[in-house]
Computed example of a mutant assay.
Amino acid sequence: MKQILVVDDSAVIRKVARRILEGMQFSTVEAENGRKALVACEQAMPDAILLDWNMPEMDGVEFLRALRKMPGGAGPKVVFCTTENEASHIALAMDAGADEYIMKPFDQHVVRSKLEDIGVI
């Protein structure tokens, strides 16, 4: 079973994402910020990461840059999931190593489509 790490400072968003992903037969792990997400990746590198942008302690872009420098950190497919919708934000996320980008609020169809597009499904 593939594992997806859900990184978001909102417990509600993590819960919604977990339900969607588990309904698609993924195993999920949660982290409330980038620092905790790095620890989770050190323990077990996930197959994919659903990543928020704005979080305390370490934001999504900082996390992604650190992830990509870790041993095995090039492997996970990363989908930014955020309210930041300006072209400059999207470009920054992609330059940092994101594979895809979705806007909040999201639903099962959007998540499934993006995961299919990047080969996680």
Rank of each mutant, 00 (worst) to 15 (best):
Glu57His: 15
Asp95Thr: 08
Glu42Tyr: 04
Cys81Tyr: 06
Ser88Met: 06
His109Ile: 12
Met58Ala: 02
Arg35Met: 15
Ala66Thr: 05
Asp47Ile: 02
Pro71Arg: 05
His89Val: 01
Ser27Ala: 14
Met70Ser: 07
Gln108Gly: 14
Ala66Met: 07
Leu67Trp: 02
Arg14Thr: 02
Phe106Tyr: 12
Ala93Leu: 02
His89Thr: 03
Met103Asp: 10
Arg68Lys: 14
Leu21Lys: 10
Glu86Gly: 04
Ala31Ile: 00
Leu38Lys: 01
Val16Cys: 01
Val29Leu: 09
Ala74Trp: 05
Asp52Val: 06
Asp99Lys: 09
Leu21Arg: 11
Lys36Tyr: 04
Asp99Asn: 15
Glu100Val: 04
Gln25Glu: 13
Pro56Glu: 10
Ala17Asp: 04
Val16Ser: 02
Glu32Val: 14
Glu42Val: 00
Pro105Val: 07
Val61Pro: 03
Lys104His: 03
Lys15Val: 06
Met45Phe: 02
Ala91Leu: 15
Tyr101Gly: 09
Arg14Phe: 05
Asn85Met: 15
Lys15Ala: 14
Arg35Phe: 12
Gly34Lys: 00
Gly73Tyr: 08
Leu67Pro: 03
Phe106Ile: 09
Lys15Tyr: 08
Cys41Asn: 09
Leu64Glu: 00
Ala87Ser: 11
Val61Lys: 01
Met55Arg: 13
His89Tyr: 11
Pro76Ala: 05
Val110Thr: 15
Thr28Ile: 07
Val12Pro: 01
Leu64His: 03
Trp53Phe: 12
Gly23Phe: 09
Gly23Asp: 11
Gly72Asn: 10
Ala66Cys: 11
Leu50Gly: 01
Met55Tyr: 13
Ile102Tyr: 11
Asp95Trp: 02
Ile20Trp: 00
Val110Gln: 15
Ile90Phe: 06
Arg35Ile: 12
Asp47Tyr: 01
Glu100Arg: 14
Ala66Tyr: 04
His109Val: 13
Lys77Arg: 15
Phe26Leu: 04
Ala93Pro: 04
Met45Glu: 02
Asp59Gly: 06
Asp99Met: 11
Trp53Gln: 12
Gly34Phe: 00
Lys104Val: 05
Cys41Pro: 09
Ala66Ser: 13
Gln108Cys: 14
Ala66Lys: 13
Glu22Ala: 08
Glu84Trp: 12
Pro105Trp: 08
Glu22Thr: 15
Met58His: 01
Ala31Phe: 00
Ala91Trp: 07
Gly72Pro: 10
Asp59Ser: 07
Arg19Met: 14
Leu67Met: 10
Lys104Trp: 03
Gly60Leu: 01
Lys15Arg: 14
Met45Asp: 01
Leu67Thr: 05
Met103Ser: 15
Glu100Cys: 14
Ala40Pro: 06
Pro76His: 08
Met45Asn: 02
Glu32Asp: 15
Pro71Ile: 05
Gly73Pro: 10
Val78Arg: 03
His89Ala: 12
Gly75Glu: 12
Lys104Cys: 00
Asp107Gln: 11
Cys41Ile: 10
Val110Pro: 07
Phe80His: 00
Glu86Ala: 06
Asp59Ile: 05
Ala91His: 13
Met103Arg: 14
Glu86Gln: 07
Tyr101Arg: 10
Met58Ile: 00
Phe106Lys: 08
Leu21Asp: 09
Glu22Val: 11
Ile13Cys: 12
Val79Phe: 06
